[in-house]
Amino acid sequence: MPEFFHRKIERTAIGFVVAIIAAASVGGIVEIAPLFTIDETVENVADMRLYTPLELAGRNVYIQEGCYACHSQMIRTLADEVDRYGPFSLAVESQYDHPMLWGSKRTGPDLARIGGKYSDVWHAAHLNNPRDVVPQSNMPAYSWLARTPLEVDNLGHHLAAQRAVGVPYTDEMIANAARDALGQATPDSDAAFSILDRYGEETQVSAFDGVATSVTQLDALIAYLQVLGQMTDAAYLDTAASELPPDAEDRDVTQAEEERN
């Protein structure tokens, strides 16, 4: 009998197309739509911060260079990964990531919690030529990043587009995007202080690549790397992972937990 039915749809091209669409749609709908309706999917945390314009630009450099081809940013729920890289990644940690950069290959180590692990100077040397600091490395040398000025003028458009896809940037952040990017890479400038007002005291202001007079793609990329894993403490709470949250000394953990509930 089923073949008899099949004999029929086999005789009409349109019918066949409709049948294909019907059969192929179910899986995607069942698996994707509920990710928006089930609240549990993304943890609700109070301290989640936004990427500053410089960090967002750095994220775009990370994308442009295809770092995700070798580095994951997703610590899985496996004991060895937690032992090596820190608490497993939570959905909320990439809540504002358009696109996500979880990666699918670890030619190099996971970078989900690389922020604060090394110094800016180390990153600058490593990106310029990894084999200068890690002779065994097969990571490419990104020597042009330090020479390529960062385009900051259109960062306002970037933030606006991010807002259009759901990241809560304010009008003020959008209006000051270029200035904030410059300020974050030039310590002691006026702009360096206003960025703390807008993005929080935790924001790292630094001459990331060691040169405070110009803002390069390398500055942006290091700013981004230094903030990975530092956007919220959520992953450190409620887990058996033995590490303390990144800013434990000035933050009361139980209080943060209360904020969360």
């Binding site: 994707i32 990710l35 993304v42 990439s94 358009h98 970037h158 587009a161 896809v165």
Partner: peptide
């Protein structure tokens, strides 16, 4: 969503975990 129509750069509409699934 492209940042402007005169720019090659765009941001996907899908966020984080949903983006991963899509």
């Amino acid at each position: 969503v492209p940042i402007t129509l005169a720019s090659a750069k765009s941001y996907t509409v899908w966020p984080g975990v949903q983006d991963a699934m899509v």
